[in-house]
Amino acid sequence: MIRPLRRAHFRVWCVLALVLPVAFAAAYRAIPRTVTSPLPVRAMPEARGPVVATIDRPAALYRLRGSAEVGYQLEVVLKRPLRSARVVVRAAANADDGDAVDRDAILGTLDARGLTRIDIGRERLDRFVLSDAIRGDIVDTLDFGSTSEEGSRP
């Protein structure tokens, strides 16, 4: 290299040595941190007994837990944050319907991310509908009665 270019390279790197770390640090400080202040924590039941059926989707893992003795529970692990502001979980009418359970009652709502457990009582339910309570459309339908991969997604 010729001398003027050597000098130019050196000067450019001296400037970068000052500017780059400052810009880097500023960008680093702007990274949103997870909130650590105490948030109202939703009371969530303990896991109830063993997993009896699983449905694995790209966005979430659904598990049915429990037994007739301890009661059943729907457990939802969201792998990606929900896109809907409010997702409610209902029991869907079973084909061999005819008992006294109110199939339309809301069993629970999902948090935007993470794990949610919803107690559903001593009677095992296999079919659930997850719907967007604001837009009114169906987010997912689950059927633990058939093979775990069945159930349609709109």
Binding site: H9, F10, L20
Partner: peptide, 9 residues
């Protein structure tokens, strides 16, 4: 940065 400044110096 350190490498370039050191070599340049």
């Amino acid at each position: 940065v350190v490498l370039h400044v050191a070599a340049g110096r």
